[in-house]
Design a protein around this nucleic acid. Structure first.
Length: 673
DNA sequence: GATCCTCGAGTTCT
DNA sequence: CTCGAGGATC
């Protein structure tokens, strides 16, 4: 009976181990979580009822150890080295050159792998059992985090295969997947705990918990990338063979590793991983190149504390630390007050960042950024920099929470924040010079009246000089008035007048959009132009008539009616018509029965090889399709180019078909015959 | 009343 | 690109 039970327990343990192995090492789960949990529960029950069956390598022993008073120090028998870094193509060539010189060879084979952005650790296995795990520390001494590492399911408690080495020290990285990081932060917010700035901090914080039960609740991952002992002992002669062997022993090894030849091969790999980066489940800060042959590695040896046979080639940092010099408030076209952090300029992701939006009062309060704070700035896959968090340890004692102004910093009008709205607004309307300026900038912008040469700087001058207060004023500008302005010669002045003249015949949808009516953007403007046909008809349209338009509800109808009821706005519209604007709706395309993309919606992400975003949009619309901004279940296709953003991931998640430019052209091409 | 889909608005730097 | 919010739909 006891034997039967022992056999059953062992079978359960094996099965649970196999499932973890399939999940973490083979990256091919074979059972559901519920299934796993059921078997796990059964084993737990069995072991509780028959303590004699308990074994230290049982999956049930990953959780539940008592908190430690502190971590013990561990000496690394073989030191954990660091790697030399490279940031440029030239440095990679120089590295390859040094290696070739050192070996007296023309072409060198390298093992290449991602450089994870996590924590380096060392795992000791004796006779196949996990006995000790430690952090890197200073390279020679680290902290004993065995109890915490036991809770990491990707780390096998028992090696697979037969025979297993008597002693093996595995080197690798503990990290947190982006997805698990996001979930953790959500949970932290829900519990009122502080959030982590990035997956690496979250992994570090989780691993250095004195209470292993906390670590167990965090989903940490592990990838092995080497061993401390001489691989020759195990009959291995290359780094890639070591990794294959580790995988056979049941240790997770990154699937993105390759073998590359020569500097061009290395740079190819760097570009390949760079393109893959946004879609990988984990963060990485670069890639690692290692001479593959172990005898060659030995011949090259070490310099100082880094091997001469390896190089970390890093991507430009997506994150940097800097200081908040000031928090200013900008006033937008609609009067929205936007707090902006002025930063000590810092290089992030290859560009210098000196400003970052703090969005609005709620966001600012949530992040609690203060003047004088040291902050983490991120410029990830997307382009726009973001202040992620402040660094508590470096907060100056006198720093005070930021308070939004109660009066507009530009015109001193009262600031109002409507209940249920996130934004605070200046109530000054067009009395506020900032709003007037922004209204003009919007009017002239490319998607509106497209007045070339009329940008922010020039608008600033015109308004300050009192030359133009409203869009209508622009059309009364004279050559001599313009030439009197700074940095404006006769040539530029004539160009501007020409551009203004061209805009007199812009399409009606552009004009409606250009007026800057609240809640009326490009799409709504186009719908309005189609329905009403002239600016005069729109001016007189009743709320009931407006509500008839598709996608216009009470709020938007009210905004439009409100706009045209304002005498000042009516005056501007009249003045525009008097100035000779003769806008007509762009001919509604005959909705051809044969339009190949009729009723289809598209989302664009990344940069396409031959088409710009606008060209791709035009192509789709010409074929009767529609381009929208975000992916949903109803989206027909996602068109992905180079360096796609999160929309690609979302498309894959929702099972929306993903196509490239080539396929888009094929779809949009008129049907033959 | 809840949920999903779109649109609008604001934003950085070269 | 992301958020917030309007509108439509169940």
């Amino acid at each position: 009976m006891a034997d039967l039970l022992a056999e059953h327990a062992e079978a359960l343990r094996r099965r649970l181990e196999d499932w973890s192995y399939q999940y973490y090492v083979l990256d091919a789960p074979t059972v559901s979580d519920a299934h796993y949990d059921a078997a796990f529960g059964e084993l737990q029950r069995l072991e509780a009822e028959h303590p004699g069956l308990l074994r230290s390598d049982s999956p049930t022993q990953r959780v539940g150890a008592a908190p430690l008073p502190e971590f013990a120090q561990v000496a690394h028998a073989v030191p954990m080295l660091s790697l030399s870094n490279a940031f440029s193509v030239a440095e990679v060539h120089a590295f390859d050159q040094r290696v070739r010189d050192g070996l007296g060879r023309d072409l060198v084979r390298y093992a290449t792998e991602p450089k994870f952005d996590g924590l380096a650790i060392s795992l000791v296995y004796e006779n196949g059992l996990f006995v000790q795990g430690a952090t890197r520390g200073d390279g020679t001494h680290g902290e004993d985090v065995t109890a915490n590492l036991r809770t990491v399911r990707a780390i096998p408690l028992r090696l697979r295969g037969d025979p297993v080495p008597a002693r093996l020290t595995v080197r690798g990285e503990v990290l947190m997947f982006k997805r698990d990081f996001a979930l953790l932060n959500e949970r932290q917010v829900a519990n009122g705990d502080k959030t982590f700035a990035n997956p690496r901090n979250a992994a570090a914080g989780s691993l250095r918990q004195l209470d292993p039960r906390v670590t167990a609740g965090r989903r940490l991952r592990f990838f092995a990338y080497g061993i401390a002992e001489s691989p020759a002992q195990h009959g291995l002669d290359s780094h890639s063979a070591v990794l294959d062997w580790l995988r056979d022993l049941g240790l997770p090894v990154c699937a993105e590793r390759r073998v590359a030849v020569g500097a061009p091969g290395l740079l190819d790999y760097f570009a390949h991983i760079g393109a893959l980066r946004p879609s990988l489940p984990f963060e990485l800060d670069g890639v690692v190149y290692k001479v593959d042959s172990l005898t060659d590695q030995q011949r090259l040896g070490f310099i100082a504390r880094a091997p001469r046979f390896a190089l970390a080639h890093k991507y430009p940092a997506e994150e940097a630390n800097t200081e908040v010099l000031a928090i200013d408030v900008q006033v937008g076209r609609t009067g929205a007050l936007t707090p902006v952090a002025r930063l000590r300029p810092v290089s992030v992701g290859g560009v210098t960042v000196s400003n970052a939006t703090l969005h609005n009062e709620d966001e600012l309060r949530r992040k609690d950024i203060r003047v004088g704070d040291h902050v983490v700035v991120r410029r990830a896959g997307d382009v726009i920099p973001e202040v992620v968090t402040f660094i508590a340890a470096q907060r100056p004692a006198q720093a005070e929470p930021y308070r939004m102004p109660t009066r507009c910093p530009v015109c001193d009008s009262a600031v109002v924040r409507l209940p249920d709205e996130a934004v605070a607004r200046c109530s000054g309307g067009l009395f506020c010079p900032a709003q007037r300026k922004q209204a003009l900038v919007h009017f002239a912008s490319r998607r509106a009246m497209d007045i070339e040469g009329l940008g922010e700087k020039l608008v600033e001058q015109l308004v300050d000089a009192g030359l133009a207060d409203t869009p209508a004023g622009l059309y009364r500008l004279q050559l001599d008035q313009l030439v009197a302005l700074d940095r404006m010669g006769e040539r530029s002045a004539r160009n501007l007048l020409d551009a203004l003249d061209r805009s007199r015949s812009a399409s009606l949808d552009r004009l409606i959009f250009a007026l800057g009516i609240r809640n009326v953007g490009e799409t709504t403007a186009r719908d309005l132009a189609r329905r009403f046909g002239s600016i005069a008809a729109l001016t007189e349209a009743s709320e009931e008539a407006l509500l008839q338009v598709r996608d216009i509800g009470p709020v938007v109808a009210w905004s439009i009616r409100q706009f045209f009821d304002e005498p000042h706005n009516r005056a501007v519209v009249h003045a525009l018509l008097a100035a000779g604007l003769h806008c007509v709706p762009s001919a509604a395309e005959p909705l051809n029965e044969l339009a190949p993309l009729r009723g289809k919606t598209f989302v664009l992400t990344g940069s396409l090889p031959a088409l710009t975003r606008d060209e791709a949009t035009a192509l789709i619309e010409a074929a009767g399709g529609k381009v929208i901004g975000s992916v949903s279940r109803k989206t027909s296709f996602v068109v992905a180019g180079a360096e796609p953003g999160s929309k690609l991931a979302r498309a894959l998640e929702l099972g929306v078909p993903v196509i490239d430019e080539q396929q888009l052209r094929a779809l949009a091409a008129p049907l033959q015959g």
